[in-house]
């Protein structure tokens, strides 16, 4: 059957083209990785800053409660910074996996 034969040939060429496209698609992941590492960078920066801000706000709040203006502000800002670094390190560990 000639038509059947022709169809098989078409199918084969389609398979060939498909695998070509797939081979091309396999090269795309590095591009994806660039985006995700940039995202990771932003995430870490944000965590660092937010940690410090949270600490400062906590310190201000505690000072307001106990009327000890700079004491808790200083202590909690340092704790906040440490917390931010901790959150950042956790993100970095995630990157390692």
């Amino acid at each position: 059957m000639p038509s059947q034969h022709k169809k098989n040939g078409e199918l084969e060429s389609l398979g060939q083209r498909l695998s070509n496209v797939k081979a091309k698609g396999a090269k795309s992941p590095p591009d994806n990785k660039v985006i995700s590492s940039a995202n990771m960078g932003w995430r870490m920066i944000l965590e660092l800053v937010v940690g410090m801000l949270l600490g400062i706000l906590l310190g201000l709040g505690l000072d307001y409660l106990f009327d000890t203006r700079p004491v808790f502000l200083i202590i909690m800002a340092l704790f906040g910074f440490a917390g931010g670094v901790r959150a950042m390190m956790r993100t970095a560990k995630e990157l390692d996996k």
Partner: peptide
């Protein structure tokens, strides 16, 4: 430190 770093998450999650 751990508690603060835990609470960093929702804040950074929304600000981003």
């Amino acid at each position: 430190i751990e508690v603060i770093s835990y609470f960093v998450r929702p804040v950074s999650h929304s600000i981003r």
